[in-house]
Each structure stands twice: as structure tokens, then as C-alpha cells.
Design a protein around this nucleic acid. Structure first.
Length: 572
RNA sequence: GCCCCCGUAGCUCAGUUGGAGCAGAGCGCUCGGUUCCGAACCGAGAGGCCGCAGGUUCGAGUCCUGCCGGGGGCACCA
């Protein structure tokens, strides 16, 4: 795939500057910045050259600008800066052609072709409810996976279920105490049991010991314990499947921690030969001598059973051997930063040089919720509430004759989920937030529905305008507002690449807001001035060009929303 | 005690390879825009010494140091 229109011009400008200055282009690559729109599209500050050339920056800029000619760019000096601006043509035609030919794939690329990225995301614990905060790992992971796929990577998404460990012992012994055998396949009941058992274990060491003992039996292949585990696990998975279907999230692999049962000994034996591994208070630990001020890593408890660090170690090695990944991403809350630092250090100590391909894609907490205290807000409840609130508005609009839909419920679901997904992805992933119903369910202002609405508007205009004519003259798109929309569209490929590199869906979210805002501004011009409408009367050539711009906006919005996992209804 | 993160408008947040978008957006508040491409929209206004104090630099919200304030993590949970 060719580089994007935007980056092609940028590269041409950088190379022209480099040639004029007689330096390698790589030296200037980071110096060329986006410009103030009033001045152009790219800017090059000449301050750093002042000392060497012993000239004032404005003088340098003036002489430099004179010697630079790049087809399709207008290069001018403005004070100490050399600015470059897209000429109306061929830029306008190139952007529209590119979007038109790539359609839903617009924004993607091929830098990941032939490469595999392994992703560990969502990863809920079985026999625990899917609470609202689980949306974070699930949707950030889903979006980061989409971003990588768009760039040609093969993504191996793994839902690393928490299906092994002491917490399962808690459910099991809790069920012996509080469980109703008739409801053994009822997820809600298992959750109640878990909450009770967890509370009791905190207050009563003997009860906690029973839970630990149950888990030890599981690791010892006790048939009875494993049968119960398997049954409860199936119940959880059935429950999870429903919610993933609703979220539109799929995984290449549903393999949990239990997958590594019986596969840890070789790893433990290998690392046992490394320095720092020893017995301490009955447990097996690795006390890495090269990690400063950090606690040792526990590989085995004093009763011989394993811990999650042991399983993560085995999993990391297994995943490399299976997939030979270019990157291995762990979309896990920032609380576990120490765990991953330790995990990576142990792998490094074991001589796995590929450890530098592993990244903890951390994210901030959702405050105001706690599984242990039992006052958890369930994800399905939030989704239901969002849908219910949106449905009212949908019904209103239908009655007012503003829109039509065959299935108001399905539409409300798409919009409600759009609001929630966007709310979770719009900010930098490391930002914490506090759960608040009104904030999570907000649908006005720059929210998910705002973007969906902008998209629906483009669809509506195209419908009324009869679609994009086979040919049009792009040079007729001379309004500043039209050019602003076009420039926003042109940036998507750059944004996608950056978002994938940094595992930041928020970059795409912010870009969507920019594009939707530019389009909305442009669209609203038509309220006052009929001559500025897309469907302008008595001027077929201009109308054709504007329909092409509207269609490109539609495609770009749809591409961006899809990357975030947000639906794109054509009517709302 | 040790380690990590954060402090930008009343609220929630962008601004993270230092460069004229670095002072912004949404919400809330005041005002205005629809007989006509759908107002889940658009425009205008009020509102911030970018936690504080130093430093580096031609240039700092952005980098460094200290202080203050908030959050998270730290051996048999994950």
C-alpha cells in the first residue's frame, strides 16, 4: 500500500528542506511540525540553525523558502518559520480518490504485514461477575487489536481467563457452605456465593485455609475437585459468551490460566539454575539480584502450589514459541505494573531476548466500584440502562417524523453502546475515572452518539443527493470549511499508525471528534446560506464535488468508529 | 519506609519526540441561530499567574531538581 497522501507530502517537504540545507533528511524528520492552520499545514522552525549560520532566523527562513519547490505544496517564509501548505489541487483530488478506492479500509496500511502481535485482554475471572470496569481491558484491547489488524498485523487475541487459583477454591468451599445445588449452573448464584465466601475468608483464617486446600487439590489432579471446577467454569463461559456477543468482541483464543496446569515444571526447573532462586519461608522465590528495591517474585507457595507469576511466566514462553510474536501486549490495569516489571525481568534473566517485544499496556482504574464489598455495578446493567435512555429519544424522533427505523430497540442498543464505548476510549488510557451514571451514559456534546449522528447525517445527505456521481471536479471544493474537513480526513492514516504504536485508541477518538466537528460546522453553514449546502440547487458541478466530500467524510467516520468497535447506523 | 503515576477553566479532560494551535474541547452558565440538505447540531460570551519555587534553553504546560497535594503498588490473591 502506498504511503498516505498526507505523509507523502510531508516527506517531500522534509527532503526538499534537507537538500536545500545539505543535510540528511533523517535529521530534519522530527523538526517539521504541524502548522497553525492560518499559516499552512507543515512548519519548519529555523531557530536551531541561527547559531551555526550566524544569521537571524527570519533571514534564514526567507532564503530557505525561496530555494524550495515541491509540486503540490506552497512554500513560504513567515517570520522564523518555513511553512508549507497543500495547494488546492492535486491534494483535494488525491485525498478523495484515496478514500474512495479504499473505502472501509481507509486509514489502514501494511507496516504489519507478515508480523504477528499477541494480545492478552479482557481476561475476567470465572465465577466472578463481569463488572462495569471490565469494559476497560475489553474495549481497549479490542480497539488496539483492530488498529493492528488495520495495519496488516496478524492478531492473536487471547482471553486469558482467571480460571485457576485460590479464588476458585473460595467459590468451591463457598458453594459447600452456601450453595443451592439446584442452582449450580446459575452464574448469578455463583457470584453470590463467591462474595459471601470471600468476606468470610477475610475474617476467618480457617475458612481461607479450606479454600487454599481446595486449590491444592485441583493442582494435585483431584478428580472430584476438578469435576466441580469444570462445571463452574462452563457456567461462567456461557455467561461470558453472551456479553462478548453483545459487545461485538471476539477472541482468537479462549485459554485461561488453567491452560498452563502441568506445563510449569520445565519453566521452574530452567529458572532454578539461575542465580537468585531459593527457598524462603517454605516458598520458592526468585530474588533477582539485578532488580533494585523490588520484592522477590514468588514461584511456589510453601504448600508447593503455583502462583499467577509462575503461570504468566510459562504463558509468556509458550506464546513466544507458538506465535513468534513481533509484539506481545498485556492489556491489564496499571495496578499490576510491578507484576509485569518483575515478569519481564525474570524473562530477561532467563535469557529470553524477545522480552523487549513485550509491553504492559496499562490503563487507569475505575473508582467507586468494588467486587469484594459486593456493591459492584454490573456491565450488563450499564448497557441496559444506556439502551433504555437512548430508546426514549429514538421513540421521540420517530414520532416527530425525523427518522425511521425498522428496529428501534436494535438502534437504541447501537447508540447506547456507542456512548459507553466512546466514553471509555476518548481519554488517554492511563487516566483514572470515577464511576458516575450520568457521565457514563452521557449522549450529548462530544460523545459517541455525536459521532454516530455526524455519520448518519452524511448518509442522509448522500441518500437525498442520489450518491456520488461517477465524475466530479474536486477543484470546486474551495470553501475554507470544505478544506478543513478534507485535511481532517487526510490525517487518519497518520493517526492510526500512531495509535497502534502507542496502543492509544484515544488518538482515534480525538481525531473522530475533530472530523465530526469540522463536518458539523461545514454542514451548519447551509442553514444560513443555501449556496453552501451540499445539495446546492442549480449548480450540479459543485453539488457533485460536495457529494464526493460528504462520501469521503462518511467513509472516514465509519472507518474510525469501527476501529473503536462502535456501530455506524445510517439513520438515527 | 521503598517504588510508580498524577496535579491545565466551576466539573471532566486534550495538549507526551520543547517551537508561532503552548493556553484548548466538552459539560455547566449567559446570549444567539431551524417555514427549506435532520438542532442527538452550530455560533458568540464569561471563566485558567498550566500545584508552588528554582534550573536548563534562543524558546518550557512540555525537560531537570526540590517542595506541597492526591492516587496506586510493595511474599505465598490475581
Amino acid at each position: 500500500m502506498n504511503p498516505s497522501v498526507y505523509s507523502r507530502y510531508r516527506t517531500a517537504f522534509v527532503e526538499a528542506l534537507a537538500q536545500a540545507l545539505g543535510v540528511p533528511a533523517s535529521e530534519l524528520e522530527s523538526q517539521v511540525k504541524p502548522a497553525d492552520p492560518a499559516h499552512g499545514d507543515f512548519s519548519f522552525p529555523t531557530f536551531p540553525l541561527a547559531k551555526a549560520q550566524k544569521k537571524a532566523p527570519p533571514a534564514i527562513a526567507a532564503s530557505l523558502a525561496q530555494g524550495i519547490k515541491v509540486p503540490g505544496l506552497e512554500v513560504v517564509a513567515a517570520g522564523p518559520y518555513v511553512n508549507a501548505k497543500f495547494a488546492l489541487m492535486p491534494f483535494t483530488a488525491e485525498v478523495l480518490d484515496t478514500v474512495r478506492s479504499q473505502g472501509a479500509r481507509y486509514g489502514g496500511g501494511d507496516v504489519g504485514a507478515g508480523k504477528t502481535v499477541v494480545m492478552d485482554y479482557s481476561s475476567p475471572n470465572i465465577a466472578k461477575p463481569i463488572a462495569f470496569h471490565h469494559i476497560r481491558s475489553t474495549m481497549i484491547g479490542h480497539s488496539v487489536a483492530n488498529l493492528h489488524r488495520a495495519l496488516g498485523y496478524k492478531v492473536e487475541g487471547i482471553n486469558y481467563l482467571g480460571d485457576w487459583g485460590k479464588q476458585f477454591g473460595l467459590v468451591a468451599v463457598g458453594f459447600q457452605e452456601y450453595g443451592d445445588p439446584a442452582r449450580r449452573n446459575d452464574m448469578a448464584h455463583l457470584v453470590e456465593v463467591y462474595i459471601k465466601a470471600n468476606k468470610r475468608a477475610e475474617a476467618e483464617p480457617a475458612f481461607d485455609e479450606r479454600a487454599r486446600d481446595f486449590f491444592r487439590r485441583m493442582e494435585a489432579n483431584d478428580a472430584e475437585a476438578l469435576a466441580l471446577w469444570k462445571e463452574f467454569r462452563e457456567t461462567s463461559l456461557r455467561d461470558f459468551a453472551r456479553i462478548y456477543a453483545r459487545l461485538g468482541v471476539k477472541f482468537e483464543h479462549m485459554e485461561g490460566e488453567s491452560f498452563y496446569q502441568g506445563k510449569m515444571e520445565p519453566v521452574i526447573e530452567e529458572i532454578a539454575r539461575k542465580p537468585g532462586v531459593k527457598e524462603s519461608q517454605g516458598a520458592t522465590i526468585v530474588d533477582i539480584p539485578y532488580a533494585e528495591n523490588e520484592p522477590p517474585v514468588l514461584l511456589k507457595k510453601n504448600d508447593g502450589s503455583t502462583l499467577y507469576a509462575t503461570r504468566d511466566l510459562a504463558a509468556a514462553i509458550d506464546r513466544y514459541e507458538r506465535f513468534h510474536f513481533e509484539k506481545s501486549l498485556y492489556v491489564v490495569a496499571t495496578d499490576q505494573a510491578l507484576h509485569f516489571r518483575q515478569l519481564f525481568r525474570v524473562l530477561e534473566a532467563m535469557g529470553r531476548e524477545w522480552v523487549d517485544r513485550m509491553v504492559h499496556v496499562n490503563f487507569g482504574r475505575v473508582h467507586g466500584m468494588s467486587t469484594r464489598k459486593g456493591n459492584v455495578v454490573l456491565l450488563t446493567d450499564v448497557l441496559d440502562e444506556a439502551k433504555a435512555r437512548v430508546l426514549e429519544k429514538v421513540q421521540e424522533n420517530i414520532q416527530a417524523g425525523k427518522m425511521q427505523t425498522e428496529d428501534p430497540e436494535a438502534l437504541a442498543e447501537q447508540i447506547g453502546l456507542g456512548a459507553i464505548f466512546f466514553g471509555d476510549l476518548k481519554n488517554r488510557r492511563t487516566t483514572d475515572y470515577t464511576f458516575d451514571w450520568d457521565e457514563v451514559l452521557a449522549v450529548e456534546g462530544h460523545t459517541g452518539p455525536y459521532l454516530q449522528y455526524a455519520h448518519a447525517r452524511t448518509c442522509n445527505v448522500l441518500r437525498k443527493g442520489g450518491g456520488v456521481p461517477a465524475s466530479y471536479d474536486a477543484s470546486l471544493l474551495t470553501l475554507p470549511e470544505e478544506q478543513a474537513v478534507l485535511r481532517a480526513i487526510a490525517r487518519l492514516p497518520v493517526v492510526v499508525q500512531e495509535a497502534a504504536e502507542q496502543c492509544e485508541p484515544s488518538f482515534v477518538a480525538r481525531w473522530l471528534l475533530d472530523l465530526a466537528a469540522e463536518f458539523s460546522r461545514y454542514y451548519t453553514l447551509g442553514n444560513q446560506d443555501r449556496g453552501k449546502r451540499v445539495l446546492v440547487e442549480d449548480n450540479e458541478p459543485v453539488k457533485a464535488a460536495r457529494l464526493a466530500l460528504t462520501d469521503a467524510t462518511r467513509a472516514a467516520l465509519a472507518a474510525g468508529l469501527s476501529l473503536l468497535g462502535i456501530a455506524t447506523p445510517e439513520n438515527m
